[in-house]
Nucleic acid binder design. Structure first.
Lengths: 335, 335
DNA sequence: TTGAAAGCGCTACCAG
DNA sequence: CTGGTAGCGCTTTCAA
């Protein structure tokens, strides 16, 4: 592949001049510009971004760390970052496959090796301290979907507790009195907080939720189906079901209807996240909107500011987001 | 950020030695290894991949070009590449946002600038010739979901025509005799070929499909809904509907049921692609499986071989894939 | 307006 | 087994 030297030689100018026209540098004669551009085209020359990154000390690269690409939630997150990337003429470097603290750390390190200017990291397994250390090492690192007080100005997160409360208020307002919950068995804070918020708000209204009406499962369609079967097997009745996420909720509806319960006339089902899926389900899923794409864009922009040192670093900055209720068809007034 | 020189200086050895222990080079004393490793850890040193790429002339980077991240079909494609990437200790560089030949070309060029070792490209807008030129310039470039005879050994593709035929055979075998089709209005070959195959096989069985029972729409849920409305508005009856893709098929089912038709008892609906969505729909969607993830992995491996020059370059290689019928609940025997 | 040259961080070759 | 050093392709002074 042709190098800048080849271009210089054939154009009969110095590499410095070639570099100047390539970077719209100042003080280049029109003649040189045209000359160089012609040779660039003839040789089909493409500058080497690695060499460029080495000397300029910036990679024009945005790193993203997510568990996987298949989950539409994470796809939306990546998409948010990608939008900013395109707008800023930068490239997306992706690290996935996160199952443990070790793999998360590995994914992040690979991005550091590549010297990404900014990194948007979705980490659930690494410790607060590990993440704080990382943030100190990498100026452009921003956490998404996680809150750590010591680096609050580097965290873009959703208030899951409040989300649970909003869910409870919605169902309460629809006159429901007997509730069930499906949570995730994954060991992260999110499901715990959503459930806590839900229970707290219920309790404020003088309603308790029986232990046997709280089930746990994998945060997938199948997980939702299995948890619902266990719920049904308890023999206890309920008219409203709050589910950890949309995929599980859709699985729950499936199982409910297979067992002769109509949604929402017999049982109202409320999901969480508002992924694309929720608009495809029948009945269309009522859920809480998690503005992940918007949050990803914000996180990316914060990272960009951080690296440009334009950041005010005002500790007052608050990147907390509140989920928004999206009422569709799966929740209804309890007669 | 610490460099290899810092490590060398503090460890009291040469940069050459540091490089050796970092790359498991041969002939390094245990003492040196331990010494260097300690300093690496103390300094929290991370090697610079850009510098490495510059000297070794390989980036350990896999490039992927897809239209977007949101469509689960493309997410699966990216996921296939990512799996190979992880396995080979390489990184994923992603380029999206393809809407025209220009943006496709731009996305590919960005990847070339980064000197990706292999590039898996999903291009629908660029001309055959442009792609052939690109393939000649980039040894590790492989096309996915497209077939160009001149570079057949660099193309991993699906036989859409055969897919249409398989669809027709399935519906015919279920005793259907009156058919409708929903195709995509996007100007690419895939929808055309699927429809052609469908019609060809029908004709072989002596069945014709009326022009008014072929509708076109955007390849989305809404597109499927709208196309179905138009179909219904024609007043013509049909018992089997073949739809361009799963999202449209789910939209079609939605509209069909809203208009009092039961799926599959009144009308059988058959999708295409077998994205995750199809397992979430009610009734579960019968569809044709497009093994995109598997194909992406194959494409990546071909690219890897191509760059390693291990490629046999045997013109006989055939990377054609045939979709596989997945019978679920949305198609049934016509009484 | 242009060219020469230093050097980004690293690997790999050659001596020792 | 180890160190010195050339050079990957590029940008960016500094002089001319």
């Amino acid at each position: 592949m042709a190098t800048i030297k080849d271009v210089a030689r054939i154009a009969g100018v110095s590499v410095a001049s070639v570099s100047r026209v390539l970077n719209n540098g100042p003080k280049v004669s029109k003649k040189t510009i045209e000359n160089v551009l012609k040779v660039v085209k003839d040789l089909n020359y493409t500058p080497n971004a690695n060499a460029r990154a080495l000397v300029t000390q910036k990679s024009t690269t945005l790193g993203v760390v997510i568990p996987d690409l298949i989950d539409p939630f994470f796809a939306s997150l990546a998409n948010g970052v990608e939008q900013v990337a395109r707008q800023k003429n930068m490239q997306l470097l992706l690290s996935t496959g996160l199952v443990s603290a070790e793999t998360e750390m590995r994914a992040i390190n690979l991005l550091i090796e590549r010297r990404c200017d900014v990194m948007v990291v979705h980490s659930k397994k690494l410790s607060d301290q590990a993440l704080i250390d990382l943030a100190n090492k990498v100026p452009g690192l921003v956490l998404i979907d996680r809150y750590i007080e010591e680096i609050a100005q580097r965290c873009v997160w959703l208030d899951n507790l409040e989300g649970g409360k909003i869910a409870a208020r919605h169902l309460l307002a629809l006159n429901h009195q007997s509730f069930a919950c499906i949570s995730s068995k994954h060991q992260i804070d999110d499901p715990l907080l959503r459930l806590q918020g839900f229970q707290q708000e219920l309790k404020s209204a003088g309603v308790d939720i029986e232990e046997s009406l709280i089930e746990y499962g994998e945060p997938t369609l199948q997980g939702g189906e299995m948890a619902t079967q266990k719920l049904l097997a308890s023999g206890k009745r309920f008219s409203a079901l709050f589910v950890y996420n949309d995929a599980m909720a859709i699985g729950a509806i499936s199982t409910l209807e297979d067992n002769g319960f109509k949604v929402p006339s017999d049982i109202s089902v409320l999901g969480f996240d508002d992924v694309l899926l929720s608009r495809y389900s029948r009945p269309k899923l009522s859920t809480l909107n998690y503005p992940i794409e918007e949050m990803a864009m914000q996180a990316t922009n914060i990272g960009l500011e951080l690296t440009a040192k334009q950041a005010d670093m005002n500790k007052n900055s608050n990147y907390k987001h509140i989920p928004r209720l999206v009422k569709r068809e799966s929740t209804n007034y309890k007669l």
